[in-house]
Structures are given as C-alpha cells and as structure tokens.
Computed example of a mutant assay.
Amino acid sequence: MVVVLMVASFSRQWTAQLVHEPLAEALPEASPAPARVAQAVGVGASSTSVGTAGGGDSAVEPPAPPGAAENTPSPGASPQGSDGYRRSLRRSVAAEAVLGVVVLAITTLLTGTQPSRAAVETAAATAEAQAPTARMVMVPFDTGIPNGNGKVQITFAPGRVGDNTVEAVVYGADGGLMSIPELRLTLTHRAQQLGPLDAKLVDRQGYFAADRLRIPLSGAWTMNVTVRLTDVDQVTVAKDVTIRPTPA
C-alpha cells in the first residue's frame, strides 16, 4: 500500500502539470500598441510622405522589432512537454492498477490463511489427538528352569505424568497366558535419582493390575519387573519406558 501511495503521488504531479499547460497556452503575449506620430506637411512635400492629400496628422505604426514574429506562438501549437506528461501519467496509472491487483491478491491470500500460532496449536492438538492413549511395553524374562521363560506385557494408561492405571499380563513360552504366583513392578528415574516407585500390582485372577500409580516426572523411567514362578524361582528384568508430559 505504501508503494501504491507513492505511485499515486507521481500521478498527481503529472495531472497537475497537464492542468497547468492549457492555462499557459491561453495567456496571450503582450504586443506593442500602434502609436500616432505627427508629421509636418509643407509646400513641395512629396505626396508619398503623407497619408492623405488633405494634410494633418496621420497614424503610422512603428516597425516591429526584429524577431517579434518568431516569438509569437502559432495558433493550436502545444508544448513539447505535454506529450511527455501524458506518457508519464499513463505509466503511473498503469502501475497503480497493477499494484492494486497485487495488494488485493495478497490480502485475499492472507485472509484465507490461518495465523502461524494458531496453525502450530492446531498441529499440536491434532498430534495430541492422534497420540496413543496408553503406553505398552513387552518385557521378556527367563528364570532358567524348564518352561520358565516368556514375556510380560505391561500397559500404562494414559502413560503420562500423573495418575496412571497399570495392567500386566504374563505370556508363556508357547505364547499363551501364563499363571504365576507373584509379579512385582517398580520404577526409577535415573536422571533425577527418583524412586523406586512401587506399583503394588494385585493379582486379578489372570492378570495383575494397579488402579493408581502416580508418576511425577516425564521422560525415561526404568522398570524393574520381578517374575516369581515358584517359591525359589524368580527373576528380575529391567526395561525402560518413556512417560509423556501432561498436555497443556
């Protein structure tokens, strides 16, 4: 818009020049008025020296100064600058029109474009909505006895800072559900030297669960999973799990 206004100021100047040009042409140049000159008429005077035979004063125009005819403007003549002013005015008006179209196009584009901050917030909200609502970790174990190996599937919901529910399911070597007498789970945040936090899992007849486990910090937590198959056969396995921060 600043550029458009600058071009418009030039157009205004060219228009003013064209308006002033006809005014200059309309002003006539001053021409010398004829003067009456008295001449004596006597006897023997030549008849060609007097304007009339009756004698008396006669009006005689003085000769025009040299170059007067050249200085007199001819009718209908136009200054050479008028055409230049018109060409400049046409160019400036055309530039105004082009710049106006560009400004309208940019304005239309910006009107339909979402602000950057809102776009970032929308993208974050979309990613948050698409993020999983639970964190699941598979922990393999091997107690060293026949049929003493398998996997523990541990699920944190929602897997964020704050209160979480924990569910653990034990799978045997054949991939089927496995019943064990005890399963313990603790979490330690090594970077902050926090823990261990005991999940206090409870046997729910087929799986182990904790209704409330408060996790105070986000980041990598080390899980220590203790699987006990018999009174003397058990193993503790460590596995990291990432806890996400609470959304703002």
Score class of each variant (00 low, 15 high):
Asp163Ala: 14
Ser46Glu: 11
Gly51Cys: 09
Asp198Ser: 13
Val37Phe: 01
Met223Thr: 10
Thr165Ser: 12
Pro34Ile: 12
Glu167His: 06
Ala173Glu: 15
Trp14Val: 04
Ala94Ile: 02
Phe10Leu: 14
Gln13Asp: 11
Ala173Met: 09
Val101Thr: 15
Asp174Ile: 09
Pro66Tyr: 03
Glu21Pro: 01
Glu61Ser: 14
Leu213Met: 07
Gln153Phe: 01
Asn224Gly: 12
Lys200Cys: 00
Val170Ser: 02
Thr186Pro: 00
Gln153Val: 12
Pro22Asn: 03
Gly100Met: 05
Asp142Lys: 05
Arg228Met: 07
Asp83Thr: 07
Pro140Thr: 08
Gly112Pro: 01
Ala191Leu: 11
Glu29Asp: 15
Ala16Leu: 08
Ser31Val: 12
Val37Asp: 06
Val60Met: 03
Glu21Tyr: 05
Gly56Leu: 02
Glu96Gly: 14
Arg244Trp: 02
Ser49Gly: 14
Val4Asp: 06
Tyr171Ala: 06
Pro22His: 03
Ser46Gly: 08
Met223Asp: 02
Asp231Val: 01
Pro22Thr: 13
Gln17Phe: 04
Ser218Arg: 07
Val93Pro: 00
Gln234Asn: 14
Pro75Lys: 04
Arg212Gly: 01
Met1Ile: 03
Gly44Trp: 04
Tyr207Met: 04
Ala45Leu: 12
Leu177Ala: 11
Leu194Glu: 10
Ala8Lys: 03
Val237Met: 01
Thr111Lys: 08
Arg184Gln: 12
Ala30Trp: 08
Ala26Asp: 13
Ala134Trp: 00
Pro146Phe: 02
Thr15Lys: 05
Val237Gly: 08
Ala45Ser: 15
Thr52Asn: 12
Ala173Val: 10
Gly84Leu: 13
Asp83Trp: 00
Leu183Asp: 05
Glu167Ile: 09
Thr155Leu: 13
Pro75Arg: 07
Arg90Gly: 04
Thr126Asn: 10
Val43Cys: 01
Thr186Gly: 02
Arg228Glu: 11
Thr143His: 00
Val139Trp: 01
Leu201Pro: 08
Thr236Arg: 06
Asp233Gln: 13
Thr236Val: 06
Gly172Ile: 05
Leu177His: 03
Ile154Asn: 09
Phe208Asn: 06
Val120Asn: 05
Ala127Gln: 14
Pro79Glu: 08
Thr165Asn: 11
Leu104Gln: 08
Ser9Val: 03
Asn164Ala: 07
Asp233Ala: 15
Arg12Glu: 11
Glu121Pro: 00
Ala248Phe: 05
Tyr171Arg: 13
Thr165Met: 05
Gly206Phe: 02
Leu197Met: 14
Ala119Leu: 10
Ala64Ser: 09
Phe10Gly: 11
Gln205Glu: 10
Leu194Asn: 07
